[in-house]
């Protein structure tokens, strides 16, 4: 709860920073849609951004399959067509706040502000999960998402990928465009997954594990009264600005919140884990 006052000025500063807005051409998404491609993310070690001092510095993430692209308006339209309770006029406030699908023209009309091939935004955690379940998938955990996103464009350790860092900072400095670009414009990372970084924020299954409050940049301490055993959480790399931003955003969210630059993608377990080192 007390996160917001601390990070709000930081984030508003970025939102208000002027910058060019890239718009992309729409492509029609009519007819039966091909299932989105899923890519195998091999198992590997990942250093969580925040951790308890008692925890190991690295955790092993098991192999999983991840959507190549964020969920688009077209795919989400298929979902609300098939699941009337997730239409804008039907959904309860407990599961999605009043700005749910706010950029759509109607219950079943994404409209000009939400092109078919742009990522769906203004969706709540509950809606994203329901979509994932409908597709026989699930949302990624924070560890899975961060691990997949830790890859650079051409190397597995993205933090040393200067191009990625430059692109990310440029994204942070740019306000969200009024109409989000097509997912086709999203760049692939080392794993082949596109648009994880520098596109839209994405929900994770366990977003409510971010116990950060107060001064999120220094993340010095957590109010011991508000959180049991949360006081010693420390961060891995105080220079990893993007991870701070994601942690701060996650900790400011409630499960029914929807915003103009928060979407999601899905993952699925894979039985094929034996071949990884």
């Amino acid at each position: 709860m007390s996160t917001a006052p601390a990070i709000a000025p930081l984030l508003f500063g970025l939102i208000l920073a002027a910058g060019p807005v890239g718009l992309s051409a729409q492509t029609a998404g009519a007819g039966a849609r091909e299932p989105v491609r899923m890519l195998r993310i091999p198992s590997g070690l990942y250093a969580p951004f925040t951790r308890d001092p008692k925890d190991a510095a690295q955790v092993r993430v098991s192999a999983f399959l991840m959507d190549e692209l964020p969920v688009t308006n077209a795919r989400f339209l298929d979902f609300v067509r098939a699941n009337p309770k997730w239409r804008r006029s039907e959904v309860g406030s407990l599961f999605a706040d009043s700005s749910y699908l706010a950029d759509w023209d109607g219950d079943l009309v994404p409209g000009s502000k939400a092109p078919p091939d742009s990522p769906v935004v203004h969706v709540s955690w509950f809606a994203a999960r329901a979509f994932a379940r409908w597709e026989g998938k699930r949302l990624p955990t924070t560890d899975e998402w961060e691990y997949a996103a830790s890859a650079g464009y051409s190397r597995v350790d993205g933090w040393n990928d200067q191009k990625l860092r430059a692109d990310l900072y440029a994204w942070f400095a740019r306000p969200s465009p009024p109409v989000l670009p097509s997912v086709d414009t999203a760049k692939a990372n080392y794993f082949g997954v596109r648009g994880l970084q520098g596109f839209v924020w994405e929900w994770v299954e366990d977003f409510n594990t971010s116990l950060v409050t107060g001064e999120s940049r220094a993340d010095s301490s957590v109010d011991a009264d508000l959180f049991c055993a949360g006081g010693a959480v420390g961060s891995r790399d105080t220079g990893d600005y993007a991870a701070y931003m994601r942690t701060a955003l996650r900790s400011s969210l409630k499960a029914n919140n929807t915003t103009s630059s928060l979407g999601f993608r899905c993952v699925r377990d894979t039985a094929d884990t034996a071949s990884d080192p």
Binding site: D55, W125, T209, L211, F227, A229
Partner: peptide, 22 residues
Amino acid sequence: ELAALLGVKYKRSQDGAYAHSN
């Protein structure tokens, strides 16, 4: 899901304890 509805944040640490909102 219940925690999400209540606004409760929690995280399991590797020693099996839970840090959580009060």
